[in-house]
């Protein structure tokens, strides 16, 4: 098992292992952009690993040096001389060949909300506003029930009866409807943010959420202000998430 102690083989083995784990170990597969970022970092770390002291570096370089210079490895050398340009050629081909696929998109998961929106001719502040219905704790149950009703009538088709974004129509849409059960969605946001998203829908998304292919309707024409706040309460109540609160001092003048 002497070859296992060779730094060169160790480095190659770690690299391959890391690639296999990251490529096939993560389900669903990580996007290519993230995977290549990871592999870049691992390559950097491996270079540090093999060169962090002189012995290790010598150990790492020796097989490479031998392959390139030693007469015994003439055959291997010829193979490499042929293979490397071919690999480059293949890489160039994969980069240049047209693929039946749209270019990668960069879509902001949580785009920046406007400071205020026009809701049926009335200005509603998004920055710093609280859910007005939460003030009356006695009516909490009533509002949640009403929100439930509104949800089932309007939202369930896409966002699903389990609020997990798997409604009947969900599979036809890209991007798919939001999954409220995911702690990365509504739990990270203030209720006012949800109000904005529900009222303005896909057409109201700002620049960074291009391309504007979200099919979320703008509900401001169909739901009242109260109904939207109720449905928001229902979303949090049903999923057991807590809305993000405003920090003190966030009701800034600007």
């Amino acid at each position: 098992m002497r070859f296992l102690r060779s730094r060169f083989l160790q480095a190659v083995a770690i690299f391959v292992l890391a690639f296999v784990v990251l490529r096939f170990g993560i389900r669903p597969p990580a996007p290519w952009s993230v995977l290549s970022l990871y592999m870049f970092i691992i390559t950097l770390a491996l270079l540090i690993f093999v060169s962090s002291d002189r012995d290790s570096w010598r150990d790492f370089v020796r097989p490479i040096w031998l392959t390139l210079t030693d007469p015994r490895y003439r055959g291997l050398r010829s193979v490499i001389v042929v293979l490397v340009p071919l690999l480059f050629g293949y890489y160039a081909y994969t980069q240049a060949a047209a693929k039946p696929q749209g270019p990668p998109e960069l879509r902001a998961v949580h785009p920046a909300p406007p400071a205020s929106i026009q809701f049926r001719g009335k200005e509603i502040n998004i920055s710093g506003v609280e859910n007005p219905l939460r003030k009356d704790a006695a009516a909490f149950g009533k509002h949640v029930a009403a929100g439930h009703d509104t949800y089932i009538r309007n939202c369930v088709y896409c966002h699903g009866d389990n609020l997990d974004g798997k409604g009947h129509f969900a599979y036809g849409f890209n991007p798919p409807p939001a999954n409220f059960q995911d702690p990365g969605t509504i739990a990270m946001l203030q209720e006012a943010y949800l109000f904005w998203r529900i009222a303005k829908g896909g057409p109201g998304l700002p620049k960074e959420s291009t391309p504007w292919n979200s099919v979320m309707p703008a509900w401001e024409e169909r739901l009242t202000e109260e109904q939207i706040w109720q449905v928001i309460m229902f979303l949090y109540d049903f999923t057991g998430q807590q809305p993000r609160r405003w920090e003190a001092g966030e009701h800034a003048s600007h």
């Binding site: 896909g202 057409p203 504007w212 292919n213 099919v215």
Partner: peptide, 8 residues
């Protein structure tokens, strides 16, 4: 792309 919502 925006106000017209044509792309829907």
């Amino acid at each position: 792309h925006t106000k017209g919502t044509c792309e829907i």
